[in-house]
Design a protein around this nucleic acid. Structure first.
Lengths: 190, 190
DNA sequence: CCCACTTGCCTAATACCTTTAGGAAGCTGC
DNA sequence: GCAGCTTCCTAAAGGTATTAGGCAAGTGGG
């Protein structure tokens, strides 16, 4: 009996690749086992269950996203930072649709607060240092940015903008212009 | 043998209720059959397959959403319309989380263009009539609004804003202020 | 009224996926 | 070179999806 050398790490990584290839919903313990040419039950020494696999893929994706965002943001500020961060999001979602879907997978509170999601939130807040926003407006703005990035990228991934003019990239650029403008002129509370 | 009186309509409606109760992902042909106290195979006279069921639930949700939005928008314009539309979205998502998830379910192009999704897009565009935006900026703005509404509501539904100050409603209100401001002062192309 | 026909729901069967229990073969260190 | 842990396996039970074929409940024409 030749051992396949399974580890949780390798299984999760394979699951992430599978997600990008066939969609996150289609990622199954069985499919990962097939990929390693191993019986399904063998994976249960490394994974608690199917949900565990999906959660770990989600955490991997969040970490990759946070790493890229962190690197892109280094040395940038203001609109430059805004655009860099936004493009990391968009590029990641387009290059790794399955992982991106995984990153949006609902996590229970403890898992979420322990994962890289909070790093992403911190980075979003860092972008706003280039704009003059005091609390609580800063938090409102963080939520706005998160919504726009996530919303746009999801709709784009779902094909929402693919069959109509103008080009999605053009809209993306103009939306970033708009956000920059809004952040510089955030309306005072009435 | 007493007949249960199954119809595609009733099955889809039951599926939608089930989605709101246990989540759209948990909606299964078997679960719907149980709800009617009927054998699973019986549903296949009314539904093509599991995917068909989910697609029909998605279309139902889109239609309900479009109906509500249409009603809310009647007689309103400008920021008033923007707020009314946004609140329909948010309220629907909070009241019917499963249906809302269903509404975001990816549809193939033909199904999507035949469904109520296009009505929603048209309504979004109608809101912008209250602002002075020419094409292609109008389309960019439609995409921005769609992204913000969808993004915010998804993040909120996933619990993103639930355990932190300020209150989510407050952010929502201030984000709508921000969007209104941005639409009134849409930056000219550099 | 009843016979034929259509329709609605059923049984049966196949094929996956998930998960647990328990066993055997490989590796590691003494 | 063997004790013990680890890795992977076989076996089994239970759930979901889907198809094929059957019987009984409604329906319409003679």
């Amino acid at each position: 009996m030749v051992r396949a050398g399974l580890t949780t790490e390798r299984l999760v990584r394979a699951g992430a690749e599978l997600a990008d290839e066939v969609g996150f919903e289609q990622v199954t313990v069985s499919a990962v086992a097939r990929r390693f040419d191993v019986k399904v039950a063998s994976l249960y020494s490394h994974l608690k269950n199917s949900q565990d696999l999906k959660t770990r893929i989600a955490l991997l994706a969040l970490e990759e996203l946070a790493d890229r965002a962190s690197e892109a943001l280094a040395g940038r500020s203001g609109k430059d930072a805004l655009g860099a961060f936004a493009n990391v999001y968009r590029d990641y979602a387009l290059a790794h649709p399955g992982r991106y879907t995984a990153a949006r997978h609902p996590l229970d509170t403890e898992t979420a607060t322990a994962g890289a999601g909070v790093r992403i939130a911190q980075l979003t807040r860092a972008i706003l240092r280039g704009y003059d926003l005091a609390e609580p407006d800063q938090t409102h703005a963080v939520r706005l940015l998160g919504s726009v990035f996530h919303g746009y990228v999801s709709l784009e991934a779902a094909g929402g903008f693919s069959h109509s003019a103008p080009d999605s990239r053009e809209s993306w650029a103009r939306i970033l212009d708009g956000l920059d403008s809004l952040l510089r002129n955030w309306p005072a509370h009435p």
